[in-house]
Structures are given as structure tokens and as C-alpha cells.
């Protein structure tokens, strides 16, 4: 069931290209604005600014991208899902689909940053691993919050307001590892942070899995 739902997500997403191209353009615009406002190239930004800009762009692109997972859906479609699948299958399929989306956004953002701005990373593999881990957390947390926000009147504002405080723990951990990767420290230095990031991910996925059925019932 989960596999079929994930398959459906991908087919739907590829069929209506407006959403995915919209988010891609959003990411490109953010990064281009960063590039223009700093008018880089002449004097390249320092590493701390690089990681701050990178994570901000990725965070906003993620919030906007994953918000679509429940907010955009039509009422009738949701009732149809309700009748054919268990809530656990739905949230898991959404989380897995959003992990792919979030990872794609993060990697695309990384590529664009390397082209437009700079790539000051000294430890690329560690950074990619961080992106992978953080995309799990982003996806679990934002999927659940998108489900909550979709039931309210001003869902787009609430999506941001509700998700930012929750996601900060994840973001701080990722930024800390990014800093280590930027400085090219030994891998063992980042082990604690990676474990923490992993633990936060586990908490978020478990909570989303447990709590989603209560939102879904209405």
C-alpha cells in the first residue's frame, strides 16, 4: 500500500509539472537574490555567511515545497484516501516522498550555490550526509505540520509559524556539522552531532507516525 501511494505521489507530481517547477524556480530565485544582494564574486563571503545563507534558502524552499503535501489537496481526494488507506500508510508514504523532494532541493541548492556563489566546503561527503539526515527530519516534521495547517483558515502563514520553532533544533545541529565540514575537521569531531541529528530524526518520524492518525480522523 505504501509503495503504491509513493508511486502515485511521483506520478501525480510529474504529471502536473507546475508545482515542482514552481519550487525549483523559487530556490533559483532565492539563491540568485542572495548572489545579487551580496554582489559576490568581487569579495567572496566568509564561511559562516555561506552556511547561514545556504540553510536559510533550503529551509524556505523546504517549507514551501512540503507545505503542498496536504495544503493543496482537494477535499474529495482526501476523503478518497481516507476510505482506501490507513493513516499510517499515508503519512509514511508522504514522509518518504518528501524525503526525496527535500533531498533533491538540498542538492540542487548546493549545486546552485557552488555555481553562483562559492563552494568553500572541505569535507563534501560529510556535508552530503548531513543533507541526507536533515532531509529526513525536515520531511517528517513539515509533513505533520502541513497536515495540521491544512485544517486551518490561514494555512500558509500557520505553516511557517508552526514549523519554524520546531525545526530549529534540527537546523542548529545541521549548521554545527556544516561548520565542521567547512573547516575540514576530522570526522570524529562531528560524530556527536551526527548522532544527535539522527536521534532528532527518529523522534520526529516516530511522533509523526503516532500523531498523524489523530489529525487524519476529521
Amino acid at each position: 500500500m505504501i509503495l503504491r501511494l509513493i508511486q502515485k505521489e511521483f506520478i501525480l507530481e510529474l504529471r502536473r509539472k507546475a508545482v515542482i517547477s514552481g519550487i525549483s524556480l523559487y530556490l533559483v530565485s532565492i539563491i540568485f537574490i542572495c548572489y545579487l544582494t551580496f554582489s559576490l564574486r568581487q569579495n567572496s563571503i566568509n564561511e559562516a555567511t555561506w552556511s547561514a545563507l545556504y540553510w536559510l534558502s533550503v529551509l524556505f524552499a523546504n517549507v514551501n515545497g512540503i507545505a503542498k503535501s496536504f495544503i493543496g489537496e482537494k477535499k474529495g481526494l482526501l476523503i478518497y484516501y481516507y476510505s482506501i488507506a490507513s493513516p499510517q500508510a499515508i503519512i509514511l508514504s508522504k514522509i518518504i516522498y518528501n524525503v526525496v523532494l527535500s533531498l533533491a532541493l538540498a542538492l540542487a541548492g548546493f549545486l546552485l550555490f557552488s555555481i553562483f556563489i562559492d563552494n568553500p566546503l572541505q569535507d563534501q561527503e560529510l556535508f552530503i550526509l548531513t543533507l541526507l539526515l536533515s532531509s529526513f527530519g525536515f520531511s517528517a516534521c513539515l509533513s505533520l505540520i502541513s497536515a495540521i495547517a491544512s485544517k486551518t483558515n490561514n494555512s500558509n502563514v500557520l505553516m511557517a509559524v508552526l514549523s519554524f520553532p520546531v525545526i530549529i533544533a534540527l537546523l542548529l545541529m545541521s549548521i554545527k556539522i556544516t561548520k565542521n565540514a567547512l573547516d575540514g575537521l576530522a570526522r570524529s569531531e562531528s560524530q556527536d552531532e551526527l548522532l544527535n541529528l539522527f536521534a532528532i530524526n527518529c523522534i520526529m518520524v516516530a511522533l509523526a507516525y503516532l500523531l498523524f492518525p489523530y489529525i487524519w480522523r476529521s
Binding site: C141, L144, I145, I148, K151, T152, L162, P165, V166, I167, I168, A169, L172, M173, N196, A199, I200, I203, M204, L207, A208, L211, Y214, I215, R217, S218
Partner: peptide, 21 residues
């Protein structure tokens, strides 16, 4: 119902923030 869900979720995400970081 929704606020109860958010309450639990946010509290669990907040603990690492206040106590661990």
C-alpha cells in the same frame, strides 16, 4: 485535537533544544 497534537509534537522537539544543545 489539532492543538493537542501540536502540543505533543512541539514539546518533544523542544526538549533537545533546552536541555541538550
Amino acid at each position: 485535537r489539532l492543538s493537542a497534537v501540536y502540543n505533543i509534537f512541539a514539546f518533544a522537539a523542544m526538549i533537545p533544544l533546552i536541555f541538550i544543545i
